[in-house]
Design a protein around this nucleic acid. Structure first.
Lengths: 257, 257
DNA sequence: CATAAAACCTAACGTAACGGGAGAAGCAAG
DNA sequence: CTTGCTTCTCCCGTTACGTTAGGTTTTATG
C-alpha cells in the first residue's frame, strides 16, 4: 500500500522517462514523495495518480505550465478551458487538412507530369495556402456571392484544373522567345483562356472586370507569387495582347486611326 | 527590374519579418544579393522567388534544414518526399482528431454532470488515448474479430456509455463505506453490470473470460489507470463479490461445505 | 551642413519539454 | 574491497525565430 519506487521503477511503471520525471521535479510539477539524504527520488502510489493526471492533460494539448496551474488550483473548473482547447485543436486540424490538400494537389501534379517547374509548384502551393486571403481580396472586386460560387467546386475538379494549368504553364515557359503571333503560341494562349473561362463559368463580364483591375496584382508577391519570371511575363503579355486584339476584345495600338 | 530592397522593404513586400530574414541569412538559407560595406542587407527580385519557395515548403511542413537541402541540391525530386510528408501529416491529423474526440467526451460529461471527479476524468481520457493499446491487449484475451465488434459502435453511443459510467462511478465513490450488502449499494453494482453487459453485447462468456483474466489488469497503471483509490477498489470488490454470490455466478467462500 | 529621426546592425538571451552526455557518487552482491 | 548497476547534478543541444540592449548608418529636414 505504501510502496516506494525508485525513479527507474516508477518510470517503467508509468511509461514515462527518468529524464521527464526529473524535469517535472525541477519545474515543481511533480515532486517525489520522498528524497533520500543522498538525493535519490522515491515515488509513491499517490504520485502515480498525479502523473496520470499530468499525462491525460498533456494528451489534451495543455502545456506543462497550464497543467501546473490546474493541479495547483485544485479547482478543476475545466469546462471553459476544455471548450477553448477544443477550438484550438479544431484550428490546428483545419490547418493540417489544408496542408494535406496542398500535398495532394502537388502529388497529383507530379504523377501526371513527372517533374514540375519549381515556380509553378510554388504558386500552386500558394494558391491553397492563401485561399482565404485570395477570397477576401476578390470580394473587394466582385460581389461576395459570386466569389463563393467560384470557390465552390469539387476537389477533383480543382485538382484537374490545377494540373491542367501547371502543364500549360510548363509549355508556355518552354515557348518563351517564340514569335507571339505564331499559331502554336496563340494556341497556348487560347488554352489558357479556355481554362480561365472554365473557372469563371464562362461569364465574360467577370473576365472583363478582372482584366480591368489586374494592374494591381503584379507587385504584391506575398499575395500572388507569379509562376513566371519578369521576362516570361512580358512575353506572355505580348502574346496575350495579340490574342485579344485578334478576338477584338481590345484595340490594336498599332492600327492607323 | 534590378530593384534593390532594404531588409525592411523586403520584409513588407514578402510578408515576413526582419528577424526571420536575418535568421535565414545566418543559417545560409537565404542570403541577400548584396551587403553594403557597413553591413546592410539588400535584396533583389530574385530573392523574392527564393523566399517564396521557402514559404511554400514551410507551409508543407518542412523544417528549414530540409528546405535548405532541397534548395541547395537543386534536384527537386520532391515526389518521394511529398508522399512521406503526407503520411506524416495524416498521422498528425489522426492524433488531433483523437484529442478532439477526447475533448468532446469530456465536455459532454461536464455538461451532463456539471462537475466530475478528477480520477474518473483521467480514466476517461486515458480510454481514448490508449484505445489502440487497449485493443491490442484485448486481442491477447479474446478473438480479434470480437474485439473489433466491441469497438465498432457509434460515437454517440460511446459518449452515452462514458457519461453513464462516469455518473455511476461518482455515485459509487459517494457510497464507499456503506454496507456492501445494502440494497442501494447492490443497485449500483447492478447498474454497473448492466452497462458492462451493454458494452459486451450481452455475451456472458466474454464476461466470464474477462473476469478470469482480470488478475493481471490491476497493477499496470500505464495501461489502465484506475478511477478508484485502493480503498475504494477494495470496497467495490466486496460489493461485487456479494452481488456475484447472490447471482450464483461464484461460490460463497463462507458457506459450510 | 548639422542634427534629429528612422532604419539598420550585432550580440545575446528566452522559448517548451525534454534528450543525451560527462563525471561523480550511492548501493547491493560476491 | 571491488564490480556493476542505478542514480545524481550540471550543462549543452534542439526549432525558428521574438525580444531587448546598445551602437552605427542612412535619410529627411531645417
Amino acid at each position: 500500500m505504501a510502496e516506494k519506487y525508485s525513479i527507474g521503477e516508477f518510470a517503467k511503471k508509468t511509461g514515462t522517462t527518468i529524464r521527464a520525471l526529473r524535469y517535472y521535479d525541477e519545474i515543481h510539477l511533480l515532486k517525489p514523495t520522498l528524497v533520500s539524504p543522498s538525493g535519490r527520488r522515491y515515488y509513491s502510489n499517490n504520485d502515480i495518480i498525479q502523473l496520470q493526471k499530468i499525462v491525460a492533460l498533456k494528451f489534451l494539448g495543455y502545456s506543462l505550465e497550464k497543467i501546473s496551474e490546474f493541479l495547483h488550483l485544485k479547482d478543476w473548473d475545466l469546462k471553459d478551458s476544455l471548450a477553448f482547447q477544443k477550438q484550438e485543436m479544431m484550428q490546428r486540424k483545419e490547418h493540417i487538412e489544408r496542408v494535406i490538400r496542398a500535398l495532394d494537389h502537388a502529388l497529383h501534379m507530379m504523377e501526371d507530369q513527372g517533374t514540375v517547374n519549381s515556380s509553378i509548384f510554388i504558386s500552386l502551393i500558394n494558391n491553397i495556402q492563401m485561399e482565404d486571403e485570395h477570397k477576401e481580396w476578390l470580394k473587394g472586386l466582385i460581389p461576395e456571392n459570386k466569389v463563393e460560387t467560384l470557390y465552390d467546386i469539387s476537389e477533383e475538379k480543382q485538382q484537374e484544373l490545377n494540373t491542367r494549368t501547371a502543364l500549360l504553364f510548363t509549355k508556355m515557359k518552354e515557348a518563351v522567345g517564340k514569335n507571339p503571333e505564331s499559331d502554336d503560341v496563340q494556341e497556348l494562349i487560347k488554352q489558357y483562356m479556355d481554362i480561365t473561362e472554365d473557372v469563371l463559368g464562362g461569364s465574360l463580364e467577370l473576365i472583363q472586370d478582372l482584366i480591368n483591375s489586374q494592374v494591381e496584382i503584379e507587385d504584391d508577391p506575398k499575395l500572388f507569387p507569379s509562376p513566371f519570371t519578369p521576362e516570361e511575363e512580358e512575353w506572355v503579355g505580348k502574346a496575350m495582347e495579340v490574342y485579344l486584339i485578334r478576338k477584338g476584345v481590345i484595340a490594336d495600338g498599332n492600327e492607323t486611326s
